[in-house]
Amino acid sequence: MEFLQFLSWACIVFTIGMFSTGLTDLKKMRATQSADNVQFLPFLTTCLNNLGWLYYGMLKKDGTLVLVNAIGAALQILYIMAYCHYTKTRRRISAQTMVAGAVLCVAWVYFSMFLSQGESQLAQLGLTCSVFTVSMYLSPLTDLVEIVRSGSVERLSFPLTVATFLTSTSWTLYGLQLQDYYIMVPNTPGIITSLIRFFLFWRFASVHQDTSTYKLIEI
């Protein structure tokens, strides 16, 4: 029980730390008064992911999931609002946000009204959240391929890689302790992709020792 409590706090601290990396982009947008060099979709997809897991945590009555994803969703909404304020392509951003909102509404209606409460509802929601999380962890693989081709790790963030590794590991162990495979399985790819990134840093960072900082890449 003590180990589970330790894992709970580890999940909270590491995950909030990972979500807070978006503050770097927020600071950049405020400094330049522009969102030209910041990606929008990671904010939107992460927000959807947070809201899905928040609902799952509420149904499962898991305080750790509820707290982490409530804070995560609030941060992503902050980043989205800031991006909408500074971007020059508001029409495109508004369209993407409306589509995401529509998807969220349809999902909520399906899971809350068309499924009877109980194990079936929880299982289908857990599976949906798991698939979405796995797709988010695997989406940067194309960037990793380009890094291997170019031999440059400038597009990678080492602090974010460490945060992703610690977050994925803590959630995997947390899910294992609870015997909840919907939590454990989707976080395993986060560990694998983080280890790949560590290898790339070891392999290519020495080529660019004069580079003192790394650019942020969203997961």
Rank of each mutant, 00 (worst) to 15 (best):
T188Q: 04
F204D: 07
T188D: 02
Y181H: 13
F198S: 04
D180E: 15
L178P: 00
Y182F: 15
F204A: 07
Y182M: 12
I192N: 08
F199G: 15
L178S: 02
F201T: 07
G190Y: 01
R203E: 13
N187S: 05
N187K: 08
Y174K: 00
R203C: 14
F199H: 15
L195A: 14
I196D: 03
I191E: 01
P189Q: 08
N187H: 14
D180A: 09
N187T: 03
M184K: 09
V185F: 12
V185C: 04
F201D: 04
I191M: 11
Y181V: 11
W202F: 15
F198K: 05
F199C: 12
V185E: 04
R197A: 06
F204K: 12
M184N: 05
Q177D: 06
F201H: 10
I183V: 14
P186R: 10
L176I: 10
I191Q: 04
T188K: 00
V185S: 04
Y174E: 00
P189H: 11
M184L: 14
T188H: 02
L200C: 09
G190F: 03
V185Y: 12
P189N: 13
D180I: 08
M184I: 03
R203T: 11
Y174D: 00
G190C: 03
F198Y: 13
G175C: 04
W202N: 12
F199T: 13
F199I: 13
T193P: 01
I192F: 10
P186C: 10
Y182H: 14
Y182I: 02
F198N: 02
L195I: 13
L178C: 03
F199N: 14
F201C: 07
S194P: 02
P189W: 09
L176Y: 13
Y181P: 00
L195D: 05
I196S: 06
L200Q: 14
I196P: 02
M184G: 01
Q177P: 00
F204I: 09
I192E: 07
P186A: 09
Q177V: 00
F204L: 12
I183F: 05
F204N: 06
L200N: 10
Y181C: 02
Q177M: 08
W202D: 02
F204V: 11
I191P: 03
L178R: 10
